[in-house]
Design a protein around this nucleic acid. Sequence first.
RNA 1: GCCGGGAUGGCGGAAUUGGUAGACGCACGGGAUUCAAAAUCCCGCGUUGGUGACAACGUGGGGGUUCGAUUCCCCCUCCCGGCACCA
Length: 872
Amino acid sequence: MQQQYPFKEIEKNTQQHWNEKQSFKAKSDSDKPKYYCLSMFPYPSGKLHMGHVRNYTIGDVLSRYHHMKGFNVLQPMGWDAFGLPAENAAIKNGVPPAKWTFDNIAYMRSQLQSLGFAIDWSRELATCQPDYYKWNQWLFLRMLEKGIAYKKTQTVNWDPVDQTVLANEQVIEGRGWRTGALIEKRKIPGYYFNITDYAQQLLGDLDKLPGWPERVKTMQANWIGKSIGVRFAFSHEIKDENNTLIDDGKLWVFTTRADTIMGVTFCAVAAEHPLAMLAARTNPELAAFIEKCKTGSMSEADIATMEKEGMSTGLTVTHPLSGEQVPVWVGNYVLMTYGDGAVMAVPAHDERDFGFAKKYGLPIKQVIVASDATFSDEAWKEWYGEKAKATCIHSGRYDGLPYKAAVDAISADLAAKGLGEKQTNWRLRDWGVSRQRYWGCPIPIIHCDDCGDVAVPDDQLPVKLPEDCVPDGSGNPLNKLDSFINCTCPNCSKPAQRETDTMDTFVDSSWYYARYASGNDNQAMVNAETNYWMQVDQYVGGIEHAILHLLYSRFWSKVMRDLGLVDYDEPFANLLTQGMVLNHIFSRRTDKGGIEYYAPEEVTLVHDEHGKTIGANLIEDGQPVDFQGMGTMSKSKRNGVDPQSLIEQYGADTARFFMMFAAPPEQTLEWSDKGVEGSHRYLKRVWGFGYALSSITQAALPEKLSSKLAEARRDIHMGLKQASYDLERQQFNTVASSGMKILNTLEKMQKEAEDHWQSVAHEGFSILLRLLSPLAPHIAQSLWKELGYGDDILNASWPEALEAAMVQDKVKLMIQVNGKLRGDLEVSQATGKSKIEELVLAQECVTKFLVDDKSVRKIIVVPNKLINVVIG
RNA sequence: GCCGGGAUGGCGGAAUUGGUAGACGCACGGGAUUCAAAAUCCCGCGUUGGUGACAACGUGGGGGUUCGAUUCCCCCUCCCGGCACCA
């Protein structure tokens, strides 16, 4: 055994040991309770970044801990391998996306392996492999049969130069991000999943997920966006140039406040609404206003400060209950994408309508009484919100009705006239899955001139994606690939064309966890083993997937359940969203007004005498740079740290240990090179202590320990108890702290070298190694074997903190006078309450307050903790 | 604007049910070792006053409940994250 900490050798040998023993191969025939631990799989972008390292370390700590706790653990890994970056790399380098992707996977897999994660690699999958995406296609066809998948025409952003569809994020100021070409709105057909049919379940089942962070559930609930109200119509006889009634003479609106319907003084429609468009054709001013609304920025900041603007269409519609004529306005605050793109406006009972009415001088009519107060321009705030759901007035036959009764009566009357009914509105839209892209899962449809769109028969699946195409940026290369397109119709055997659209990559990631669990079965999408492993007991990943990926996975699970494929309906029982990894940002303003960034290694920090950082200088010229910023690691800010160089310099254990120690998993982690060194220093000390202990044979603990050794042993077991508690609540930074404290105790014992310290040390060190093994598994395993504790630390059981080791015959009680700490008192455990009070009252730190007319009013004794003497 | 989460030394952070605030680490200061440096080890380290024992203050600010509040309640400020002007 070497004296110096040979981390490279240790890590290489330990990883080899795990490989040979197949230590992490998960089997589903076990009596133990199962624990499925899953980290979100990476996109194979080229190499790992620190966010990956943090994510997978958290998952690995949980996996290894549960393994030692006696669970049958599954921790798989795979690759979210379809997607746009591969196509962009192909355009740039002329390499087929498949080759680029598989090369990246090979490199990143080796990186993951060098970090020593306890992964069952036999279950590895990549979503771009035909035996994976075959089942995307298979389930797509089942969904088509059930009507969950359907085809409709969608409006998309079309880049006329690249001949391709762009995502909203790829349209910058109306132009394509790559070409700079003006983007057109085009209507093209595509496939959709009817996720809105599942909206109620997706919302309601959030209650089945107590192990999810509250904020994620809130974000999902907001995204689904349920609102219950009444949809009704204002009728009209407005006709277009061809003398056709617009929307069959009905202006539909949705409201959650049907009780205020008698207070409507105008309607507002979106700029894209048919009535607005019609009016604009004869009103240039209105046309200009509508154009302005369309080009208006939709960014958050702009919306928050945006002025509510509008313009009259000059049109009127008929109130369905009062029969009054109501003017129609175009409002920039009405969204065409929500509801029917039109709202009723009740200025007296809606803050937005109020502002709009005040601005344009529209009438305000109060129809609800919430209190004795009368509505006024000054005291209007209280008229909005929940408490304003009170009694109707000035509402004809609805006068005197409270909120619910008024809504019931009004919706009944509307229904009787065929002009409305109660309705639930959702913000959630159906999920469009067609992408006009090459590097994705082909949609298994064949277009036949005679038979129309025909499903590819199951026995012809998978529809394989040709892997040797090199996109050149001008549209989907599949469209030019006759060998892919040309086929025969499965129905009539006539020549036909294959669909060239591919699926949204969110489809791929919506069920990969179930596929791991099936052990990559070639006969079926999922199997009995899937139901054994599912649900995922612990899912770990970034908060950026809080909405779409998690929502789609939940939806997919429910679809698979309804098709009888699986018996769970929520895929992830517990969710941990890890925080981001930040690093210092060093920068300078350049003469031209730009900002130049410097890497941390190009800068030295300046401290004052307290150690406070008061500045930073560029090493090259010794001049100051701005140093106060902290941000996510990025190329552009030049503050990234490469995991590979970290592993080479300090080893995987140091990287893992530091990441766990620096911050609790859900919080942001501030990178610190000095902190990494500190963690490395700690592991070196662990190794050094193990080396020292390796030459000392183990002996049984003596009957009676000296008080010092008993105290040391107690500290160790207390540390273990704390660490176990912290692992259960997933606070890993304090697990590392406990490990540090235990080593401090061991080293102190070693220095003092009392008789029998060696036996306490061996017991303590075997505890320490097991406690460290989830965080720094290589060094723990290596020392475990070197010291002869066992062959495989992973199979050692998690240590129990012994009550016998933790009892103490004497306890230190803190003495408070009127709640202020004044001293302490050591008493034996057995001392009774009255004896303690007697002893405390004799203490000088208490008696000195008993002067003048002061006397003891009360004594509070908290067992084994403190005594508070109240003097007054 | 709404929703969610926060604010503790020079820094990252700890404090389990209301009971010793600042564990553990980093930075910093002093010392040992060394020809010297690195590495390593030891000591100190919330602020203020005092040679000192000690005292006062101290968990974003203000109030409250309590023998006792970082922890519970009310009000306010600031920061981070999310969002939907959602009818």
